[in-house]
């Protein structure tokens, strides 16, 4: 986080933001890596934030509390919050933030993609779904202590290949050929069976569990730690 000008007032606003927690997570937005810059000039504070995920429903609450905290700093008469699509990734979470998240069973993958169970420390963590209880989380399971684990979804850094889907938007630059890939039929067939459509009035189709396993493996391509078990 950059603190620019405003000297003491700016530093104090930055300290005040340490007290602002993500409403869905027991961790400061500073430790979550959401605060990118704080500027105070002539009593006007400008706080630049990045969302973890663009659709996070807590953003307006975060913004509201940032304004409130900044306004509580002596010498600050107004506060502007600017949201920037800044490419937040798990690497932005501080060590203190990782520890706080681990305390509630939520893991941030390491720089090398490693995920360790927050309860027993095992690396034998298997993904169960790329989609979890919030847009920024995926669901996983520790096969050692047999406990469900949540993993903070991280975004591929700019320019990095995110996995097998290569048609997504890349960084500005020369045009790249579009390549779309699907699971080969053989990979799907290897699961034994796949869903026979879904029928809201007829109950769950047989075989969807096996297809779920295919999804788990597929999701592993996006999140390498998923394939560890």
């Amino acid at each position: 986080m950059a603190v620019r000008s405003g000297r003491e007032a700016g530093a104090e606003v930055a300290r005040a933001l340490q007290e602002v927690e993500d409403p869905e997570l027991p961790v400061s937005i500073v430790d979550l890596g959401m605060v990118r810059a704080v500027t105070v000039s002539a009593g006007a504070a400008v706080v630049e934030l990045v969302p973890t995920f663009l659709a996070c429903p807590a953003l307006w609450l975060v913004e509201s509390e940032v304004r409130e905290r900044a306004a509580g700093v002596p010498g600050v008469t107004q506060c502007q919050v600017i949201w920037r699509p800044g490419g937040w990734t798990g690497a932005d979470v501080t060590e203190a933030g990782r520890a706080a998240l681990a305390g509630v069973g939520l893991v941030v993958p390491g720089d090398d993609g490693t995920v360790r169970c927050p309860f027993c420390g095992s690396a034998e963590v298997t993904a169960t779904s790329a989609f979890g209880s919030a847009v920024c989380r995926s669901a996983a399971f520790c096969t050692t202590c047999r406990t469900p684990v949540e993993v903070l979804k991280t975004k591929a850094p700019a320019g990095a290949a995110p996995g097998p889907v290569e048609a997504a938007a890349g960084p500005p630059g020369p045009a790249q050929p579009v390549e779309l890939r699907l699971i080969p039929r053989a990979a799907s067939a290897a699961t034994g069976s796949a869903p026979d459509g879904y029928e809201p009035d007829g109950g769950a189709p047989d075989g969807y569990e096996a297809a779920g396993a295919a999804e788990t493996r597929r999701a592993g391509a996006l999140m390498p730690w998923m394939n560890r078990s």
Partner: peptide, 16 residues
């Protein structure tokens, strides 16, 4: 990318 991966997977799984 998570979305595309989900739908690609299920398209293949359902066809199979």
């Amino acid at each position: 990318r998570y979305h595309l991966d989900f739908w690609s997977t299920w398209l293949a799984a359902t066809c199979g």
